[in-house]
Simulated scan of single mutants.
Amino acid sequence: MTQFYFVRHGKTEINAKGRFNGGTVDSPLIESGVEATKRMAQHLKDVPFDRVLTSPQMRAQTTAKIILAENIKAPELTIVEELRELRLGDWDGKKIDQITAAYPEEIKNYRTRPDLFDAEKIHAESYNSLITRSTKVIEEVTAAHPKEKVLVVSHGILLMALLNTLKGIPLAKIRESGIVDNSSLTILNHSKEQTVFETWGQTF
């Protein structure tokens, strides 16, 4: 089985300002985000990663570099476009409370019924697209590297959608368990036949 270490990036300026932090915006990690990631790095320093996959967005790359700076093996980063966060179109970078007031029905579906979310209405990417592209990455890595330890650094919505889909949860229900925290770790042992989670959303 391939052992995946899924990490959500550290907290960023956009997160702290209460804005949508999707696939077309980016900002630096804030101090608390750096410190939380450094604590995780200490926890993971003795894990001999075989490869490291990261979203192209700088907040994910920065998080990965903090972890690898403490790691005993520290392979080079591989940037994977398909690990980019869900593109939120007209909402990206906007204040969450303002969008909530302006798009009550769309926000409700976005947060509670992903199967009903009309992404085209706000020029966004659909949950189905996000799941298709992220799941493909994991299945390809699992097939090609069945005995490796792989660090994957990505984003809240992507990880929520991907990990719940791998658990077999249908699209309509993938948001029921919530989004993993910034600087959190989820460990998955995965093969074509099995999906076994060791930890889910652990913080440090």
Results as ranks from 00 to 15, higher is better:
Val150Gly: 04
Pro75Asn: 08
Ser134Val: 13
Lys65Cys: 10
Asp50Pro: 01
Arg113Met: 11
Trp91Asp: 01
Leu86Val: 09
Gln194Met: 12
Gly23Lys: 10
Gln61Thr: 10
Ala41Met: 06
Gln98Phe: 12
Asn128Glu: 15
Leu130Arg: 02
Gly168His: 03
Ala144Trp: 03
Asp115Pro: 02
Leu158Glu: 00
Leu83Asp: 04
Ala69Val: 10
Asp26Ala: 15
Leu185Trp: 07
Thr132Ala: 15
Ser55Leu: 01
Lys45Cys: 09
Ser126Val: 08
Gln98Tyr: 13
Asp115Leu: 02
Ser183Gly: 05
Pro170Val: 06
Gly201Gln: 02
Ile174Lys: 12
Leu163Met: 08
Lys17Thr: 14
Arg51Glu: 09
Lys17Met: 14
Ile99Phe: 07
Asn15Phe: 01
Leu83Lys: 00
Glu176Tyr: 13
Arg39Tyr: 09
Thr195Asp: 04
Thr63Trp: 01
Arg51His: 07
Leu162Val: 05
Lys173Thr: 13
Asp92Gln: 09
Ala60Gln: 02
Asn128Ile: 15
Lys149His: 15
Thr142Pro: 03
Ser27Glu: 11
Glu193Pro: 12
Asn15Val: 10
Asp115Phe: 01
Asn182Pro: 00
Ala119Thr: 01
Ala74Arg: 04
His43Ser: 11
Gln202Ser: 14
Lys95Pro: 00
His190Trp: 14
Asp181Gln: 12
Phe117Pro: 00
Lys192Asp: 14
Lys65His: 08
Gly168Met: 09
Ala172Trp: 03
Thr195Glu: 02
Ser154Ala: 15
Ala161Val: 02
Ala124Asn: 04
Tyr110Ala: 06
Pro48Asp: 06
Pro170Leu: 05
Ser32Gln: 12
Gly201Asp: 06
Phe197Cys: 08
Leu159Phe: 08
Pro146Leu: 06
Lys192Gln: 15
Lys121Asn: 03
Leu77Ala: 09
Ile122Gly: 07
Glu140Val: 09
Thr62Val: 07
Met160Trp: 05
Ile67Leu: 15
Gln98Pro: 06
Gly156Leu: 02
Gln57Cys: 03
Ala36Lys: 13
Ala16Leu: 07
Thr54Tyr: 00
Thr24His: 09
Lys136Gly: 12
Gly33Phe: 01
Gly178Ile: 04
Lys192Thr: 14
Arg111Lys: 13
Lys95Val: 10
Thr132His: 12
Glu125Ala: 11
Asp118Leu: 01
Ala69Tyr: 06
Thr199Asn: 11
Arg111Glu: 02
Thr37Val: 02
Thr186Met: 12
Thr199Ala: 09
Ile30Trp: 05
Leu44Gly: 07
Arg111Asn: 14
Phe49Ser: 07
Ala69Gln: 13
Ser134Lys: 11
Ala41Glu: 06
Gln202Phe: 09
Phe49Ala: 07
Lys11Gly: 00
Ile169Trp: 03
Glu140Ala: 12
Ile169Ala: 07
Met40Pro: 02
Ala144Lys: 08
Ile157Leu: 11
Leu68His: 04
Glu106Cys: 11
Lys38Gln: 12
Tyr5Thr: 08
Lys45Glu: 14
Pro48Ser: 07
Glu76Gly: 15
Gln57Asn: 02
Lys147Met: 13
Leu171His: 07
Pro114Tyr: 02
Phe197Trp: 02
Asp181Lys: 11
Ala161Arg: 01
Ala144Pro: 01
Leu44Gln: 11
Lys192Glu: 15
Arg8Leu: 15
Val47Glu: 10
Leu130Thr: 08
Asn109Ile: 13
Thr24Leu: 10
Met1Leu: 13
Glu176Leu: 14
Thr12Glu: 05
Leu116Phe: 06
Ala143Glu: 14
Leu83Ile: 03
Met58Ala: 08
Val152Leu: 03
